[in-house]
Design a protein around this nucleic acid. Structure first.
Length: 698
DNA sequence: TGGCCTCGAGTTCA
DNA sequence: CTCGAGGCCA
């Protein structure tokens, strides 16, 4: 019981603190999702232990006291908050409750996006805006009339026949474009940037100088009524009220729609969710309001929220979690990457356990330490990132100093013990162990086997790790000496090491199929091409594209190996730096030995005369492929275009001649349109290929 | 020398 | 996908 009580008091303190920071300081300390979670936990504890509930618990209040910088305003009709639903089930419960209590089997809801901004109340008397206030704690807010008057879409005078008194509730928000522009400027001028658009809106409204507010790109959508002296007749639903507000000149969110029953609200939720990223403003959910006023009255209220409305939240894009450790990863080139190991947390639908910290500079910028609470986000792309540290949750020692020191990169490679060095002016630190370092050896092998290199199917990271750790493979050439027996023996040793039951014991026969397939895949990779083997060798700064150029330019490996720096720099896109790296690679006796061993093991590729000048019908064209093609893969399409002399590039710029856009083409197509670059659909591509005698099929 | 344009390298999870 | 840096051109 003591434990419950102390947990409740802890939660209360956390929530109060978060409230204060959010409402009074405009400086949120924890993400909304975390706040909601804490509040729910406290609510549940209070429900199961009503005797322990504090009468002043934050669950009984909507927000917090105003900051005192502005006049206080008492709301004639309180501004309530909404209950939240985080799952379809909770929405189903909400709808079922309404159906049961109203007796309406198919109730109509007004559904609208839940804008991520700041709730305000506008008071019009005789059609003139006389006062605007923030929500504050729900019953008392702050008078921010002067600031609200600067928002262009808020009418200072209503159109038509307005009632004597009309209070309109709605959301003030900053759209994404405005937010981005604000931060860009703040960054350029060395000012503090805003954490998110909602803070932009809140911070702007709290400016003491309305001239500053006037420069902020704020908008407003009305979504509810407060005090109204006389509602026009025949307004019996929320939808009708919104339509009426529109006629008075008040902006209402165009996404708002009337929907029917559970099916209707869930369909609205999904439709809106799909378009979430495309909307010009941030939303954090949908809101459903029972449309008929008589039904709303029948449902009534619970302490802090109406029972006839609910906010259905989308999975949070930001979450708070704890850093359990900061580990080091060693890349193929020795690059040292610090990685935050996180307490698993669900962010936008997936569980995140790792997040890259990129490099030492980034760690220093964020000042991430072990034990810290951090905000994790999955931004536009998929890869999670640590956005910031929640400073006031940092663990402290008894003296009040941080428990953990600032993180410093180790001086020695944690894998091989070699020195870690950072070259002058470079951002990345590197392990100097080279192929002596097992981590680099492993990465080199993974690279060698990868699809764009030797394309050895089935030889994945796990297998390579075991092969390297157990000493079966030292260099890439050793792969070609592996036999069926060595794989089976290795498997036995792995099972023994991990304590896993050998499959041989379970099935009673030798499960050699996977090993046979692997041997076959390795054998198949013996027949390759010069550009693949060049790429596979893993020369620094020689990627797939440069390898292709080198292969074409020299035609044969020996010619490349003997080329001096001057000869190398004759190759397009090769300058002094890359030339030196290539020379350095081939000067290394170990690398020459590996190449000899590969050849001795039967790895071969066609060699031919150097092709220096690009020719073919599409010579000089720079083509970018994007989106999925139905009749062939992008790689195949690229190979065919290259056969015609075109250059395939990965990014769109004004030098691009054509963008081939397949299914679901994204940002590259958008960029092409923006730059006015010619685009081809798949049909056009096929026509061009067959027009030059290239068979598009198979 | 500065400002593109590219390429390379590293990264997460189902 | 994004960042960093090499290469090229004005």
């Amino acid at each position: 019981m003591d434990a419950v009580l102390s947990r409740m008091r802890d939660l209360q303190a956390c929530i109060e603190d978060a409230n204060r920071r959010y409402h009074v300081l405009d400086d949120p300390s924890i993400p909304d999702a975390e706040y909601d979670r804490l509040l729910r936990e406290l609510e549940e504890l209070e429900r199961s232990h009503p005797d322990l509930a504090d009468p002043d618990s934050p669950t009984r209040r909507v927000g917090d006291r105003p900051s005192g910088r502005f006049e206080e305003v008492a709301h004639a009709v309180p501004m309530l908050s909404l209950g939240n639903a985080f799952s379809d089930e909770e929405v189903a419960d909400f709808v079922a409750r309404i159906e049961k209590e109203t007796g309406d089997a198919d109730p109509v809801f007004s559904a609208e996006p839940k804008l991520d901004g700041l709730a305000v109340s506008l008071r019009y008397e005789y059609g003139v805006l006389v006062r605007g206030a923030t929500r504050g704690d729900g019953s008392t807010g702050e008078d921010v009339t002067a600031n609200l008057r600067t928002i262009r879409c808020i009418p200072l005078k209503l159109l038509g026949a307005a009632p004597d008194v009309l209070e309109v509730r709605g959301e003030v928000f900053m759209d994404r474009a405005g937010f981005a522009a604000y931060n860009e400027r703040a960054l350029a001028e060395g000012e503090k940037t805003l954490a998110n658009p909602r803070n932009g809106a809140a911070g702007s409204l709290r400016q003491l100088d309305p001239r500053i507010t006037a420069k902020r790109p704020l908008s407003f959508y009305a979504y509810a009524l407060g005090e109204v002296s006389a509602l026009p007749p025949r307004i019996e639903t929320h939808s009708q009220a919104l339509a009426w507000l529109r006629t008075l000149g008040l902006p209402v969110c165009p996404e708002t729609a009337a929907v029917r029953g559970l099916e209707g609200v869930l369909a609205f939720y999904r439709r809106l969710g799909e378009r979430r990223d495309a909307l010009p403003y941030d939303i954090d959910g949908s809101v459903y309001k029972l449309d008929r006023y008589d039904q709303q009255r029948a449902m009534g209220f619970v302490s802090r929220a109406p029972r006839w409305a609910i906010a259905h939240k989308y999975p949070a894009q930001e979450q708070m979690t704890a850093v359990e450790a900061i580990d080091i990863q060693v890349g193929r080139t020795g690059a040292i990457t610090p990685v935050a190991r996180l307490l698993p947390v669900a962010v936008a639908g997936v569980t995140v356990t790792n997040a890259t910290l990129h490099n030492a500079d980034q760690v220093a910028r964020l000042d991430v330490r072990i034990g810290d609470s951090v905000i994790v986000r999955r931004a536009g792309d998929v890869i999670p990132e640590v956005v910031r540290v929640v400073d006031h949750l940092r663990p402290l020692d008894s003296g009040g100093a941080p428990l953990h020191p600032a993180y410093a990169l180790p001086l020695q490679c944690p894998v091989c013990g070699s020195a870690i060095e950072r070259e002058q002016g470079e951002v990345v630190a590197r392990c100097t162990g080279g192929l002596f370092c097992p981590a680099q050896r492993r990465q080199a092998l993974i690279h060698f086997a990868s699809r764009r290199a030797m394309d050895i199917e089935g030889l994945g990271e796990r297998l390579i790790e075991d092969l390297v750790d157990l000493g079966y493979v030292q260099t890439v050439a050793d792969l070609y000496a592996l036999t069926l027996d060595s794989f089976l023996e290795m498997k036995r040793r792995v099972d023994l090491r991990d304590g896993t039951t050998p499959e041989t014991a379970k099935s009673g026969k030798v499960p050699s199929k996977w090993a046979e397939n692997l041997i076959a895949a390795i054998a198949a990779s013996r027949e390759t091409t010069l550009d693949r083997i060049l790429f596979a060798l893993g020369i620094r700064d020689v990627g797939a594209s440069t390898a292709k150029t080198l292969a074409r330019h020299f035609g044969a490996l020996d010619a490349l190996m003997e080329a001096d720096p001057e000869a190398l720099q004759q190759v397009p896109d090769i300058g002094p730096v890359v030339a030196a790296r290539i020379r350095h690679f081939f000067a290394e006796p170990h690398n020459r030995a590996v190449i000899a061993a590969l050849r001795a093991n039967g790895v071969h590729w066609p060699e031919g005369a150097p092709q220096r000048a690009g020719d073919g019908p599409l010579a000089g064209m720079s083509v970018v492929l994007t989106g999925g093609l139905a009749s062939m893969s992008r790689d195949e399409a690229g190979a065919r275009l290259e056969a015609l002399g075109a250059k395939i590039s990965g990014s769109v710029s004004k030098k691009t001649s054509v963008v081939v856009a397949g299914e679901a083409a994204g940002s590259k197509l958008a960029k092409a349109r923006e730059l006015g670059i010619e685009t081809w659909d798949e049909a056009r591509l096929l026509a061009v290929l067959s027009g030059h005698g290239i068979d598009a099929g198979a």
